[in-house]
Protein backbone atom coordinates (compact mmCIF):
# COMPACT_ATOMS: atom_id res chain seq x y z
CA UNK A 1 0.00 0.00 0.00
CA UNK A 2 2.75 2.35 1.00
CA UNK A 3 4.62 1.63 -2.23
CA UNK A 4 1.52 2.32 -4.30
CA UNK A 5 0.99 5.60 -2.54
CA UNK A 6 4.68 6.31 -3.07
CA UNK A 7 4.35 5.62 -6.78
CA UNK A 8 1.29 7.80 -7.07
CA UNK A 9 3.12 10.54 -5.22
CA UNK A 10 6.17 10.20 -7.50
CA UNK A 11 3.95 10.38 -10.53
CA UNK A 12 2.19 13.50 -9.31
CA UNK A 13 5.49 15.08 -8.34
CA UNK A 14 6.91 14.35 -11.76
CA UNK A 15 3.92 16.01 -13.38
CA UNK A 16 4.23 19.10 -11.22
CA UNK A 17 7.93 19.33 -11.99
CA UNK A 18 7.31 19.06 -15.71
CA UNK A 19 4.58 21.65 -15.51
CA UNK A 20 6.88 24.08 -13.70
CA UNK A 21 9.77 23.40 -16.06
CA UNK A 22 7.65 24.00 -19.14
CA UNK A 23 6.10 27.15 -17.75
CA UNK A 24 9.14 28.80 -16.30
CA UNK A 25 12.01 28.55 -18.76
CA UNK A 26 14.63 31.12 -17.84
CA UNK A 27 17.21 31.73 -20.47
CA UNK A 28 20.74 32.99 -20.68
CA UNK A 29 22.21 34.26 -23.89
CA UNK A 30 25.74 33.57 -25.03
CA UNK A 31 27.32 35.02 -28.13
CA UNK A 32 30.26 32.90 -29.18
CA UNK A 33 31.25 34.90 -32.24
CA UNK A 34 28.04 36.07 -33.80
CA UNK A 35 27.67 39.18 -35.95
CA UNK A 36 25.04 40.70 -33.58
CA UNK A 37 22.21 40.08 -35.98
CA UNK A 38 20.80 37.15 -34.01
CA UNK A 39 21.57 38.84 -30.71
CA UNK A 40 19.48 41.91 -31.43
CA UNK A 41 16.63 39.70 -32.61
CA UNK A 42 16.82 37.71 -29.38
CA UNK A 43 16.76 40.93 -27.40
CA UNK A 44 13.82 42.07 -29.51
CA UNK A 45 11.82 39.05 -28.34
CA UNK A 46 11.62 40.43 -24.80
CA UNK A 47 10.40 43.84 -25.96
CA UNK A 48 6.75 44.91 -26.17
CA UNK A 49 5.85 43.67 -29.64
CA UNK A 50 6.93 40.08 -28.90
CA UNK A 51 7.11 39.98 -25.09
CA UNK A 52 8.53 36.59 -24.22
CA UNK A 53 7.53 37.04 -20.58
CA UNK A 54 4.08 35.89 -21.71
CA UNK A 55 5.53 32.39 -21.86
CA UNK A 56 7.43 32.79 -18.64
CA UNK A 57 10.74 33.24 -20.44
CA UNK A 58 13.05 35.63 -18.67
CA UNK A 59 16.56 36.56 -19.75
CA UNK A 60 18.86 35.97 -16.79
CA UNK A 61 22.32 37.30 -16.17
CA UNK A 62 23.83 34.46 -14.18
CA UNK A 63 24.22 30.99 -15.71
CA UNK A 64 23.28 29.60 -12.28
CA UNK A 65 19.75 30.93 -12.70
CA UNK A 66 19.14 29.73 -16.21
CA UNK A 67 17.47 26.67 -17.71
CA UNK A 68 18.03 27.40 -21.37
CA UNK A 69 21.29 28.47 -22.99
CA UNK A 70 20.58 30.45 -26.13
CA UNK A 71 23.68 30.36 -28.33
CA UNK A 72 24.38 32.51 -31.34
CA UNK A 73 27.19 32.61 -33.83
CA UNK A 74 29.95 30.27 -34.87
CA UNK A 75 32.31 29.27 -32.07
CA UNK A 76 35.54 31.26 -32.17
CA UNK A 77 38.86 30.13 -30.75
CA UNK A 78 38.55 32.34 -27.72
CA UNK A 79 34.87 31.76 -27.06
CA UNK A 80 35.06 27.96 -27.05
CA UNK A 81 36.21 27.51 -23.48
CA UNK A 82 33.88 30.24 -22.24
CA UNK A 83 30.94 28.55 -23.91
CA UNK A 84 31.83 25.25 -22.25
CA UNK A 85 32.22 26.96 -18.90
CA UNK A 86 28.91 28.75 -19.07
CA UNK A 87 27.27 25.46 -20.00
CA UNK A 88 28.93 23.68 -17.09
CA UNK A 89 27.93 26.42 -14.65
CA UNK A 90 24.27 25.89 -15.39
CA UNK A 91 22.44 23.60 -12.97
CA UNK A 92 20.58 20.55 -14.26
CA UNK A 93 18.23 20.14 -16.03
CA UNK A 94 19.46 22.41 -18.80
CA UNK A 95 18.77 22.84 -22.48
CA UNK A 96 20.66 24.45 -25.35
CA UNK A 97 19.16 26.30 -28.27
CA UNK A 98 21.30 27.21 -31.28
CA UNK A 99 19.97 30.34 -32.98
CA UNK A 100 20.94 31.29 -36.50
CA UNK A 101 22.77 29.76 -39.44
CA UNK A 102 26.21 30.33 -37.92
CA UNK A 103 25.30 28.56 -34.69
CA UNK A 104 23.94 25.62 -36.67
CA UNK A 105 26.62 25.22 -39.33
CA UNK A 106 29.14 28.04 -39.11
CA UNK A 107 27.22 29.80 -41.87
CA UNK A 108 29.11 32.33 -43.93
CA UNK A 109 32.12 32.01 -41.62
CA UNK A 110 32.95 28.40 -42.46
CA UNK A 111 36.65 28.15 -43.13
CA UNK A 112 37.65 31.30 -41.28
CA UNK A 113 40.77 30.65 -39.22
CA UNK A 114 39.25 32.12 -36.05
CA UNK A 115 36.25 29.79 -36.15
CA UNK A 116 36.46 26.31 -34.66
CA UNK A 117 33.03 25.20 -35.73
CA UNK A 118 29.40 25.37 -34.75
CA UNK A 119 27.68 25.03 -31.40
CA UNK A 120 26.98 21.30 -31.37
CA UNK A 121 30.65 20.56 -31.90
CA UNK A 122 31.26 22.05 -28.47
CA UNK A 123 28.16 21.37 -26.38
CA UNK A 124 25.04 19.25 -27.02
CA UNK A 125 22.18 21.17 -28.62
CA UNK A 126 18.47 20.46 -28.04
CA UNK A 127 16.87 22.80 -30.55
CA UNK A 128 17.97 24.55 -33.72
CA UNK A 129 16.41 27.77 -34.99
CA UNK A 130 17.61 28.54 -38.52
CA UNK A 131 17.77 31.92 -40.21
CA UNK A 132 20.24 34.68 -40.89
CA UNK A 133 19.07 35.94 -38.53
CA UNK A 134 15.82 34.21 -37.56
CA UNK A 135 12.95 36.62 -37.00
CA UNK A 136 11.85 37.13 -33.40
CA UNK A 137 8.70 35.16 -34.21
CA UNK A 138 10.86 32.25 -35.35
CA UNK A 139 12.89 32.38 -32.15
CA UNK A 140 9.73 32.34 -30.05
CA UNK A 141 8.36 29.49 -32.14
CA UNK A 142 11.56 27.53 -31.64
CA UNK A 143 11.46 28.02 -27.88
CA UNK A 144 7.80 27.06 -27.67
CA UNK A 145 8.55 23.90 -29.68
CA UNK A 146 11.35 23.05 -27.27
CA UNK A 147 8.94 23.49 -24.37
CA UNK A 148 6.45 21.28 -26.16
CA UNK A 149 9.01 18.52 -26.47
CA UNK A 150 9.81 18.89 -22.76
CA UNK A 151 6.14 18.50 -22.00
CA UNK A 152 5.98 15.34 -24.08
CA UNK A 153 9.12 13.97 -22.46
CA UNK A 154 7.77 14.81 -19.00
CA UNK A 155 4.49 13.03 -19.77
CA UNK A 156 6.42 10.00 -20.97
CA UNK A 157 8.32 9.88 -17.65
CA UNK A 158 5.11 10.28 -15.69
CA UNK A 159 3.59 7.54 -17.86
CA UNK A 160 6.45 5.23 -16.99
CA UNK A 161 5.84 5.89 -13.31
CA UNK A 162 2.14 5.10 -13.87
CA UNK A 163 3.07 1.90 -15.69
CA UNK A 164 5.38 0.91 -12.85
CA UNK A 165 2.66 1.53 -10.29
CA UNK A 166 0.24 -0.56 -12.35
CA UNK A 167 2.62 -3.51 -12.38
CA UNK A 168 3.26 -3.11 -8.67
CA UNK A 169 -0.49 -3.15 -8.07
CA UNK A 170 -1.06 -6.38 -10.00
Amino acid sequence: MATILGKKWDEALEQVKTWARVNSPWAIHFNSGSCNGCDIEILATVTPRYDLERFGVKLQGSPRHADILICTGPVTLQARDRLKRVYEQMPEPKFVVAVGSCAISGGVFQGCYGVVGHIDQVIPVDAYIPGCPPRPEAIIDGLVKLLGSLQAKGEATAGEARHDSATAHS
Partner: peptide
Protein backbone atom coordinates in the same frame (compact mmCIF):
# COMPACT_ATOMS: atom_id res chain seq x y z
CA UNK B 1 3.29 50.11 -17.82
CA UNK B 2 6.04 49.05 -20.22
CA UNK B 3 3.43 48.32 -22.86
CA UNK B 4 3.85 44.55 -22.62
CA UNK B 5 1.38 41.81 -21.83
CA UNK B 6 3.35 40.38 -18.96
CA UNK B 7 3.42 37.01 -17.24
CA UNK B 8 0.53 34.61 -16.69
CA UNK B 9 -1.08 34.41 -13.27
CA UNK B 10 0.68 31.23 -12.20
CA UNK B 11 4.10 32.45 -13.33
CA UNK B 12 5.66 33.13 -9.90
CA UNK B 13 4.43 29.75 -8.64
CA UNK B 14 5.88 27.95 -11.65
CA UNK B 15 9.18 29.80 -11.13
CA UNK B 16 9.40 28.71 -7.51
CA UNK B 17 8.43 25.08 -8.16
CA UNK B 18 10.89 24.86 -11.01
CA UNK B 19 13.69 26.28 -8.87
CA UNK B 20 12.85 23.84 -6.08
CA UNK B 21 13.13 20.95 -8.54
CA UNK B 22 16.41 22.20 -9.95
CA UNK B 23 19.91 21.09 -9.10
CA UNK B 24 21.51 23.21 -6.40
CA UNK B 25 25.12 23.84 -7.24
Amino acid sequence: LQNRIGPRWFQPAADIVKLLAKEEV
